[in-house]
Design a protein around this nucleic acid. Sequence first.
RNA 1: GCCCGGGUGGCGGAAUGGUAGACGCUGCGGACUUAAAAUCCGUUGUCCGUAAGGACGUGGGGGUUCGAGUCCCCCCCUGGGCACCA
Length: 861
Amino acid sequence: MSVNCKDYDFSLIEPHWQSFWERKKTFRAEDFSDKPKYYILDMYPYPSGSGLHIGHPEGYTASDILARYKSANGCNVLHPMGWDAFGLPAEQHAINQGTPPGATTAKNVEVFRRQIKRIGFALDWEREINTTDPGYYKWTQWIFLQMFKHGLAYVDERPVWWCPALKTVLANEEVINGRSERGDHPVERRNLRQWVLRITAHADRLLDGLQDLDWPESTKRQQSNWIGRSEGAEVVFGIDGFPDDSVKVFTTRPDTLFGATYMVLAPEHPLTAKVTTGEFRGKVNAYVREAAGKSDLDRTDLAKEKTGVFTGSFAINPVNDQHIPIWTADYVLLTYGTGAIMAVPAHDERDHEFAEKFQLPIVPVIEPKTADADTALPYMGQGVMVDSGDYTGLDSEAGKQQITADLESSGRGKAAINYKLRDWLFSRQRYWGEPIPIVWVDEETYERAASIKKGAVAALLPKEPITYLAEGKVLCALPIPETELPLELPETDSYQPSGTGESPLANIKEWLDVWFDLKTGRTVPASEPVPEDGNWARATRETNTMPQWAGSCWYYLRYCDPANESALIDPKLEQYWKTPDFYIGGAEHAVLHLLYARFWHQFLYDIKVVSEPEPFKKLFHQGIILGEDGAKMSKSVGNVVNPDEVIDRYGADSLRLFEMFLGPLEDVKPWNTTGIDGVSRFLRRVWRELIDRDGAIHGNIQDGHTDTPETERLLHETIKKVTGDIERLRFNTAISQMMIFANHLQKTESISLATAKVFIQLLAPFAPHMCEELWERLGENPSIVNAPWPQFDPAKLATEEVRIVFQINGKLRGDALVPNDADEAAVLETARAHPRVKAHLEGKPIKKVIYVPGKILNIVV
RNA sequence: GCCCGGGUGGCGGAAUGGUAGACGCUGCGGACUUAAAAUCCGUUGUCCGUAAGGACGUGGGGGUUCGAGUCCCCCCCUGGGCACCA
C-alpha cells in the first residue's frame, strides 16, 4: 500500500517502506536457495557512544546498492550486519561512571541499530550478531581452544607495551609514536606473562595467499611488507677466547662476508654480558642498562645518532678466520633475526654510519658492474665480488649461493629466511573482552588430567604443556572444553584494573579460584565443598581476556549460521555460503584485522571447519569523508556532520544518493552541505515528472506511448551506463547519467509508462524508499527489489548519423553530422566544405589525413 | 629514508590516446510571486575582440604521436603506509 501523500514527503515515505520491508522480510537471505548466492559483507561497526557518523553510511550505501542490484539480477543475497562490541571505551566508561560495560554496549547498539535502520539498508536483521553475546563468544573461545590444542597458542614472559595511565598492556599496533592509540598516554616497556598466537607459523601462507586475492594492490603490498619476508643466510661466527660459544647472525648478503669488519650484538643478547671482558664491563653494563630503559621510540625515531660500545672480545669470520671486534649497539634489535649482525660498513648504510662514527675499518668487497654507477660508499647494489678470497670475480648473486652452500657443508651456516612479522600478542589485562578459557594447575595435576582417557580436557591438550613459573612454582594450562563454554564474564562492581598487570578479573576471588573437574572441565567455586563424583582439583582461572580483534576474525562465518548452538557454523551452510563475495571497509584495516582474520581462517581451513583457504576474495576500501573544511571530522574541531540531522532535513534517500555522488568511492573527499541540495532537487524533480500534483500518475506518463528515438536511445544508454557503473562501483557517474536522463524527461512532452518504470528501477538501489513508492504508484506490486534488472538493447543505441569532429594539425576547427557508414573520402569532402575548416586549409597542401570512423577527422597540412 | 596513491574551473568532480571541464554545487542575469520559499529559463576556465572568431589552458620541464589530462623520462607539491628488519 502506498503512502497517502501528494508531494514527495520522505518523512512519511521512508518509515513506511522501512516497516514494509521489515514486515515482509524482503531482505531475508534464504539458506540453500537454488538461486546463485551472493554474500556481501560490510566491516561491522564498533558501536561507540557517539553514534553513527557520516563515514559509516558511505560503505554501507555502496554495499547496499550492490546488494539490491544483485537481488534484481536473480541472486540470493546475504547482506548482514552486526556489532564489534568488545573494547576499551565501554570499560573506561564503567570505570568512570560505574555503568556495567554490558549495559553501555547494549545502549550503544540500540542507537546504532536505530540509526542504521533509518537509512533503509537491505539488511537481513534476523542474522544480526554481537561479539559480546555469550552465544557468539562461545565460539571465539572455541577457536582459541583449537589453536591451543594445535600448539598455536602459547604463554611467554615478554617485554610488552605497558601503559601506566590505562594500567594495561597494549599491542604494538595500539602504540603510535610511543603513545597509546586510545587516550594518547605515554607507554613503556615491561615484562609480563602473555598469551601469544603463533601467526608466524603462517607467514609464508599469509604472503603467498595474497597473490590470488582481488584486493587493492596497495593493501596487498602493505600486508606483504608487514610480513616482511627476506631470504639470506645464518652464519656462525666463533668467539676468540670462548671455544664453547658462537654467535649466529642473519644476513641477506652472505656475498659481503669478506667485508665484515665488526660484529654487533643487541644489548639484550644473552652473549653480550658473557663476552664482555673485564676492562669494558663497566661501560657495557651501563650501556645495556640505558638501552633497557629506553622505549622503542627512543631507540628508533630519536636515535638518529648511532650509539654503542666495544665489548673487548673478537669474533672469528668463518670464511677467512679474520678476527673482528664485537660491539653492542641498540641499532641491532633482539627481536629480529638472531639479535646479532655481522657489520659490513662498505655495503650497508647503518653499518657505514656506525663505522664512520667509531672509526672502524670499511672494506669494499662488491664493485658495481656498470661503469657509470655511483661508486660512493656504502654501495648497496649487486655487482662483482672483489677481495673475497676464492670468490673474487664472482657475480654477487652467484657468490651468495656459493658461500651459503660452502658454509652449509662446513657446518658454519645455512640458508635462512626471516620475517618482520612477530607472533601476535593475544592477551589483554581488561574486563570487557572474551575470557580466555584456561585454568592453571600445578604439574602433578596436569599429569593427572593428561592421563584421563577420553577426557574432554585431555582431548584438547597440546603436544607440549603450556607452563609458566610463578613464585618458584611451575603452573600448567588446562583448557576449559567446549561443553563448558561459553565461559561467561563474571559480574562485578569494580572494573578498575588491578594495576599489577592483571585484569580486573583477578580481583573477583569467587570466580578466580575453582574446583576443576580434570575430565569434563566442569568448575565449581573453590569456596564450595568439593563435589563427590569426578576428578576434582584446585585451579586458578586465567584472568586475561582476548583483544578486540578476536571477535572480528571470524564474524563473517557466523552470519551464515548465527544461532547455531552446537557448532560455529553448520558444514552444510558453510558449503552453501562459503565466504563473502564482496567485502567493503576502511583501509585502516589493511594490515591488522585483515591479516589476523586471514590467519584464523587459514587455521579453520586446516581443521576443516571451512572449505576455502582464504576468507576475503574481493575487497574494496571506501575513502574517508572529511569535514567541509577538508580536515578530518572530529568533535574538537567541530566539523562533524551528523547523519540523523541530514536525514531529518533531506531524507535518507538524499543522504544515500549524496554520499555516492560526492566522488569516487575509494577517494578521500570532503563533505559539502550545499551539494546535498543538488541530489535532493534531483529526487524531487523525478517525483514531479512522474507524479501529478494530486498524487496520481503524471499526465505525461502514458501507457503504450511510443517514445521518441531520442528518449529510447537515452534510456538504453542510461541502462548501460548505470549497470556498468554499479558493476565497477562507480556510483558517482551512474548518478550523473540518471540526472541527465531526468533532465531529458523534463524537456520531453510524454514518455511511456514502461520507460518510466525502467528508469525507476535503475534509481531504486540508490534511492530505494522513493522508488518503492513510485513503483507502486505506477501500478506495480512491491517490492521493486523483486523486479528483474533492465537490460539494454544495443540496437537502440545506434544512430543513423554521427557527429565527426574536424581537426587541422590536431586542433579543433569544426564538426558535422555524417551518415553512420560514411567513408573517409565522403567525410573529407564534408570537412573541406566546412567554412572554418576551409579557411584554415586556404593555400596549404594536405599532407596527411587521419580518419577515425565515428569520431574524428584530422587533416595534417 | 623506503613503498604506495593523488595534483584538472570558484568548489566536488567527468573524460577506451581522439571535441578537456560531463553531472552537480556556487556565483551572476532573468521569469513567476505583494513578498519569500519552491520552481523554471539563461549564463559561468582565462585572455583578446562589439561580434564572428582567435590565443592560452589538466602541478613544472622535456619527449613519443597526426593528436597527450591520459604513454615515457626528470623535477616540485601533497595524502597514506612502513620505518635501524641486517
